[in-house]
């Protein structure tokens, strides 16, 4: 909801999946062949001996980044959707007000602060980052799942019960499909934030695409910073355009 918009699509009006695929190809090509840009990067940083970040291969950094974000987001989707569904069932209804308040208060917490707090609690490394991303990523998913489920016309629910659908059938055949576009928007927000926050995780000892940026800033090498920034930007756009596409597919059916 908060970052989703239709304007961005028209900017890159490639048909169907070509958009995200194009970005992906560009991302992979640059990760493999950053060397092609050496001449350009030299312009930015004429005095440095080395302009290409070489401490780790970009592909490995990209892999790490995607892995951390992927694991955290997957867990956040499972927990977030599961939790939100649980508190909208009769058995978990008691927890609904608290969970929905928590989800909205939690979203005012800056992601960096959450990441920073995870370190004292869990130490340095990849695990605290995953936990921090997971926790923060839960919030938009929970919030949107709740909004999606609660936004369903009560009469549709009533009719489903009146027709003799069981609770499970109502959940699978009515509630989830109807809430899917809203839930997906939440997942998109969550993943977008996670891609960005994971990069900051480079400061707490994870090696990913944030690394070149941090080491570039530390060493005063703008070329490093550019390489990292370029790849993270491309990753974010690839992911976002894929979600854009997915949302269109899911949202296309029937629903107003």
């Amino acid at each position: 909801m908060s970052t989703a918009g239709s304007g961005a699509v028209r900017l890159r009006a490639l048909p169907g999946w070509l958009g995200p695929l194009g970005w992906l190809v560009l991302l992979l090509a640059l990760s493999l062949g950053m060397g092609w840009l050496e001449g350009l990067l030299r312009l930015v940083e004429p005095d440095s001996r080395q302009v290409l970040y070489a401490r780790a291969s970009f592909l490995a950094l990209l892999g790490q980044h995607v892995l951390v974000v992927g694991v955290a987001s997957l867990a956040a989707v499972l927990l977030g959707v599961g939790g939100a569904l649980a508190v909208t069932r009769p058995a978990g209804r008691d927890f609904l007000p608290l969970v929905s308040q928590l989800a909205s208060i939690g979203q005012t917490f800056p992601p960096v602060a959450v990441l920073a707090l995870a370190v004292p609690a869990l130490g340095f490394g990849t695990l605290p980052i995953i936990v921090a991303l997971l926790l923060y990523g839960l919030l938009p998913i929970v919030r949107n799942t709740l909004a999606g489920i609660q936004g369903i016309d009560p009469d549709v629910h009533e009719a489903a019960r009146g027709m003799g659908m069981t609770r499970g059938q109502i959940l699978r055949q009515v509630e989830l499909p109807l809430a899917a576009p809203v839930i997906l928007a939440g997942v998109r927000t969550s993943v977008t934030i996670n891609v960005a926050t994971a990069a900051i995780g480079a400061t707490v000892g994870a090696s990913n695409l944030g690394d070149p940026i941090i080491s570039g800033i530390v060493n005063g090498n703008t070329a490093y910073v550019l390489q990292g920034a370029l790849l993270i930007g491309l990753l974010a756009i690839t992911v976002d355009s894929a979600f854009e596409r997915l949302q269109r597919r899911v949202g296309r059916r029937g629903v107003q």
Partner: peptide, 18 residues
């Protein structure tokens, strides 16, 4: 809206860097 949406998806650390 196209440009602003696009901008919003770029991670902050990358935009600072760029």
């Amino acid at each position: 809206f196209g440009v602003l949406n696009f901008l919003q998806t770029i991670p902050s650390i990358a935009l600072f860097g760029l």
